[in-house]
């Protein structure tokens, strides 16, 4: 019995130490685990012009301007905005008001030159009719907020610090 108890304590202690070590490491490298910067992140920790990084947020309503293959739009996290220029094929889910993650770099004028564009969707799923009736009845606001949360990630609130 005592041997079993000793093993139990030994294994439990080992797991506890491992968990603590992992938590510390994750906290330390947390920044490098971010897949993209939101416009707010960019404001707080500026990135040098010409340096490659990913910018994520919502495509601002009414900002999309297509000129042949070239497309201009504005990425927003509802606090700050960054103008983006992109030439190429867009994913099917690219829409105004929807989440987007683009990879590229800033030019001297502060415009983000995107080399590729990925669509980021939120966690809401529903049939088209339900979405329509939600919009009609005015309950849609909630869904849009959800989309904004999704696009921002949990950058300000959720990081394990």
């Amino acid at each position: 019995m005592t041997r079993k108890k000793r093993r139990l304590y030994f294994v439990s202690l080992g797991l506890l130490a491992l968990g603590a070590a992992t938590a510390l490491i994750l906290t330390a490298v947390s920044d490098s685990l971010l897949y993209f910067y939101s416009p707010t992140d960019l404001r707080e920790r500026p990135v040098a012009e010409g340096q490659r990084f990913r910018l994520g947020g919502l495509v601002e309503e009414g900002s999309v301007d297509k000129d042949g293959e070239t497309i201009r739009f504005v990425v927003t996290d509802l606090v700050y905005t960054v103008p983006v220029v992109y030439t190429g094929i867009l994913p099917d889910l690219f829409r105004e008001g929807q989440g987007v993650v683009t990879e590229g770099s800033l030019d001297p004028a502060g415009v983000f030159l995107a080399a590729n564009v990925l669509a980021k969707h939120d966690e809401n799923y529903m049939p088209p009719e339900v979405a329509d009736s939600l919009k009609e009845s005015g309950y849609w606001e909630e869904g849009v907020d959800g989309a904004a949360d999704a696009a921002q990630g949990a950058a300000p609130a959720g990081a394990p610090q």
Partner: peptide
């Protein structure tokens, strides 16, 4: 915890966000 391309969970049995998938799905 981090910005990811993958969206957050749609089914949260505990917590405020609950389930964000339509019943038919």
């Amino acid at each position: 915890w981090w910005n990811t391309l993958h969206q957050p969970a749609s089914v949260n049995p505990v917590g405020e966000s609950g389930i964000s998938i339509d019943a038919s799905m």
